[in-house]
């Protein structure tokens, strides 16, 4: 696996975690619980965006490994 695909797989894991947190936040009955899920979801979204930029950058650096 190239570094690019590793970063990509990490990115998609984060994406799935992000979505999962959204579902949990929606299902949670307790206000505090819901707030925590949402806070964490926001943090993950920020990380996700950073990582997405990274994926693009790596893709440009090593176009020969772009599958």
């Amino acid at each position: 696996m190239t570094v690019g695909s590793q970063v990509k797989s990490c990115y998609s894991s984060l994406k799935s975690a992000d979505a999962q947190l959204g579902i949990l936040a929606n299902k949670a009955q307790d206000q505090e619980t819901r707030q925590t899920y949402q806070d964490v979801q926001n943090i993950i979204s920020e990380i996700k965006e950073d990582l997405q930029k990274e994926v693009i950058r790596i893709g440009q650096e090593e176009p020969q490994y772009k599958n």
Binding site: S13, Q20, L21, D50, E54
Partner: peptide, 30 residues
């Protein structure tokens, strides 16, 4: 929930690994 927790932990470990592996200073910082 356990799955989600494991995913998050794995991602964290991955990010740390990338930080160690890269030689690009800016990427390391990110």
């Amino acid at each position: 929930k356990p799955l989600l927790f494991a995913t998050l932990k794995k991602c964290q470990a991955d990010l740390e690994l990338f930080a160690l592996a890269t030689e690009n200073q800016q990427a390391k910082q990110v």
